[in-house]
Each structure stands twice: as C-alpha cells, then as structure tokens.
C-alpha cells in the first residue's frame, strides 16, 4: 500500500498516469453533462409550485456541490502536504483552487437568478448565502496568498495553513439552514432519507452531479500535471521528456 502510494506520488509516475486517465474522465463527463442538461431542460416536468423556474436547480445544485466538495479536496490535500511534506499534495491543492472558485461563483450567481423570481430578491444576508460568499472569498484569499510568495515552499506552507483553517466554513455552509432560521430551503437530497424530489426530476440532477464530479477530476488532473511540470523543471525526467523536441541548442 505504501510503496504503491509513494510510487503514485512520485512526479514522473503521476505525470504519465494522469495524462493517460485525463481524457477518460473528460469525454464521459461531457457526454453525461449533455444528457443531464437535456433531461433537466426537456424531459423533466415543470414543478407544481415553481413551474419551469425550478430548472435552475440543474445548474445551481451541481455547482454548489462542486464548490464545497472541491474545497474539501483542497483542504485535505493541504493537510497531507503540511504533515507529510508531500509536494504533490500541495500541487493538488493549488490546482483545485481556481476550479473551485469558478464554480462557487456560478453557485452564487445561479442562486441569485433563482432567488429573484421565487423568493423575490437576488440577495439576502442569510446565513447560507453569506457563508457561501465567504467560501468564495476564502478561495480568492488562498490564490492571492499563493501568488504573493516568490518561494514555492513558503507559498505551499502559508496557503496550506489558510486552507486548513478555512475548512471551518464548510460545516457552517452545510448546517446553516439547520442551526439558524434561513431563507434557503432544506436539502432535497439527503444521505439517509428519501429525496424530496420526484424521480423524473431527480435522475437528471444525479446525472449532472456525477458529470460535474468527473469533469472536476479531469480538470484537476490536467492542472496538477501543469503544476508538476513547473515544479520539476530542472529534474532529469523532464529533460528526458522535453529535451529532444527542442533539439540540440
């Protein structure tokens, strides 16, 4: 187990493996994304209360799910990087940040577009909405903290600590509806209970959640490969890999 892990965490091995797996995540994810979108926009019936306006759920829930899931990945990778001093883990965290920030923004925007017709407002300083906005700021803070260091090791350590501290926000987002009164409704998908969304509306949503997970996986692999290349520029295996194409200078 440990030898396997170390082999995976070795940059050249990871670089090769990720390059092989990447397309196998990206293309299926795009296919599922297309099917799920068709299901959500065309096949699912209109809601009994919200009519066709409820279809915003098909972009809002996957993006909100990605916003917190990606942060969890970022924080766990940072903790592993800090404790075991694995550079690849820091690379994973750094690569996850821009993806997570972009989907957090989409979750906030699609939520506003949903809130305006249904609730009657684009924005309220409601616990759930506010904590999601804080998540976006944490992503921005993480990225700008990284960018402010010249030295990679220092950047890894400082931003990693911020990422670990920021994880406190995740349970607040998740439970804000339960701990405090909130304008935001409760979850329609529950881990233990039956979902409170009927089957013909549910399957496109689940498909889109699966698709966005795969999509994130593909993006992450690609971005970590780029991170690894930048970090290992002067190592032997990169010269072997890219030396030939440049010709003898």
């Amino acid at each position: 187990m440990w030898t396997w892990f170390h082999k995976l965490a070795s940059p050249p091995h990871f670089y090769r493996l990720a390059g092989l797996i990447g397309p196998w995540l990206l293309w299926p994810s795009l296919l599922l994304l297309a099917v799920g979108t068709y299901g959500g926009l065309v096949l699912a019936p209109a809601d009994y209360q919200q009519g066709d306006g409820f279809r915003i759920i098909y972009v809002h829930v996957p993006s909100a799910y990605l916003s917190t899931t990606i942060y969890a990945v970022l924080a766990v990778a940072s903790a592993i990087g800090l404790i075991w001093r694995i550079k690849l883990a820091h690379a994973v965290a750094a690569a996850a940040a821009p993806i997570g920030a972009s989907f957090t923004a989409v979750a906030l925007i699609s939520g506003a577009l949903w809130g305006k017709p249904m609730w009657g407002t684009y924005w309220e300083w409601d616990p759930r909405l506010t904590s999601e906005l804080i998540l976006l700021f944490i992503y921005f803070g993480y990225m700008s903290l990284r960018a402010s260091f010249e030295d990679l090791n220092q950047a890894d350590r400082a931003s990693g600590l911020l990422a670990v501290i920021g994880v406190v926000n995740l349970p607040i987002i998740h439970y804000s509806g339960m701990w405090w009164s909130s304008l935001h409704q409760g979850p329609s998908l529950k881990t233990l209970d039956a979902p409170s969304i009927s089957g013909d509306m549910l399957w496109p949503l689940l498909l889109l959640i699966a698709a966005s997970t795969l999509f994130f996986g593909a993006l992450l692999l690609s971005r970590v490969r780029a991170e690894v290349l930048d970090r290992e520029q002067n190592s032997r295996w990169i010269q072997d890999l890219f030396g030939d194409s440049a010709g003898a200078g």
Binding site: L26, L33, T37, L41, A46, G51, D52, G53, R55, I56, Y58, V59, H60, P62, S63, I99, S102, F103, A105, V106, I109, S110, L113, W114, K116, P117, F215, L219
Partner: peptide, 23 residues
C-alpha cells in the same frame, strides 16, 4: 420557460460559460 426565460437561460448560460472557461 413558462415566463422564467431570462432567469433559466442566464443561469444555464453562466454554467456553460464556466465549463468552457475551465476547459
């Protein structure tokens, strides 16, 4: 979209813009 066209289509537009931007 049952009168919700601007909200539904802008939400989907933002989502797909984000997907393409990420790729």
């Amino acid at each position: 979209m049952g009168g919700y066209a601007e909200f539904v289509w802008s939400a989907f537009g933002v989502w797909f813009a984000c997907v393409i931007f990420n790729i």
